[in-house]
């Protein structure tokens, strides 16, 4: 465990140090890149709760990522045009309120999706979560009110009390802070009785039911919490790009979120952070050297699956110990 703790601290410091250094050197783009890493890592932390702790392979988490993005986009649009939302309730550009709305919406939608999906298992679970995400994707593309496939622009980045979010570094710090909170949540869940029950449900559901804990309810709760964290990340992602669109809901995005978790090491606390760092940097670096970057990205991903089981954290910090 000690080696992993050192690796975790190293990753956390690295992600903080690079933007600070970039800021003093006047290279704001690296702050943007680090913000992207932090936000995608948070989305993957959310997925990791379902996937790593609960063993629930959701191939539809883009649905929650996108819904979070749309929550931010829709609220910002209404506020920008000074249109009330409904029943005369005024909209807002305050990030904390937007985050709450995003998480609430994702949690509420995750409950019915989870309730139906969790009746299945294995490949069926993978595919039914994909089906739900596809439903929402097609709905978003063809629903004209909020831009359809063109997406929704956020003309001015939403605000956070006391911080100028339009500047890269303060916005990065907001995202970094939320990532830290997300990681703490994951850590607390994993160590809690709830987390123990969830992991027991993954390993042996029958035994768990035998001691009087219904695995379904535990899993459903985990799925909803997981969706809420990913939705929060979606809201940040929309603010980062000042834009939200159905491509956040696409099955490619679901695939990418899975890639982040597995690349870093599923179930590991800092797995999503390591995965997001590697993925974003690869995309940036390969994209800079060759037009064929997607080919080499595929090759590297394949190499990781085949030869580096346990992902990046497995390489850095050794095999995970159970118990």
């Amino acid at each position: 465990m000690k080696r992993e703790a050192i690796a975790n601290a190293g990753l956390a410091l690295l992600l903080l140090a690079v933007p600070l250094a970039a800021s003093t050197m006047g290279e704001p783009f690296y702050i943007t890149l680090a913000t992207r890493i932090a936000v995608l890592a948070l989305a993957a932390v959310g997925l990791n709760i379902a996937l790593g702790l609960g063993g629930l392979v959701s191939f539809g988490h883009a649905a929650f990522f996108g819904l979070g993005g749309y929550a931010a986009g829709i609220l910002a649009t209404h506020a920008f045009n000074a249109e009330p939302l409904f029943f005369g309730i005024p909209s807002t550009t305050s990030m904390p309120v937007i985050w709450l709305v995003a998480m609430l919406v994702c949690g509420l939608i995750a409950l019915p999706i989870g309730a139906i999906s969790l009746r299945t298992s294995g490949v069926y679970f993978i595919m039914i979560t994909l089906a739900f995400a596809q439903m929402i994707y097609y709905f978003a593309i063809s629903w004209p009110a909020y831009g359809g496939e063109d997406g929704l622009s956020i003309y001015v980045r939403n605000s956070f009390p006391g911080i100028n979010t339009a500047r890269p570094l303060p916005f990065f710090l907001v995202c970094y802070g939320l990532l830290a909170l997300g990681l703490m949540l994951f850590w607390a869940l994993r160590g809690s009785r709830f987390g123990a029950a969830l992991q027991a449900a993954r390993q042996n559901a029958t035994r768990l039911a035998a001691v009087g804990i219904p695995p379904f309810r535990i899993r459903l709760t985990a799925f909803a919490i997981s969706a809420m964290v990913t939705g929060l990340a979606g809201a940040l992602f929309a603010d980062l790009n000042r834009f939200t669109s159905p491509s956040m809901l696409s099955w490619h995005m679901s695939g990418e979120l899975l890639v982040l978790v597995i690349l870093g090491g599923k179930g590991r606390l800092f797995g999503p952070v390591a995965g997001a760092m590697l993925y974003v940097l690869l995309e940036y670096w390969l994209g800079g050297i060759t037009e064929r970057w997607q080919f080499f990205l595929g090759l590297i991903l394949l190499g990781v699956v085949l030869f580096a089981r346990g992902g990046l954290m497995g390489l850095i910090a050794g095999k995970e110990r159970h118990g």
Partner: peptide, 30 residues
């Protein structure tokens, strides 16, 4: 679209381009 946004930021902040062009699709332009 997300990748296009990131590249645009990079071109402005890191490459310090004076002009931009090239986008094919309406949703990416938006």
């Amino acid at each position: 679209p997300e990748l296009a946004v990131q590249i645009a930021e990079k071109m402005i902040q890191s490459d310090k381009v004076d002009l931009m062009t090239g986008i094919i699709w309406s949703n990416l332009a938006m």
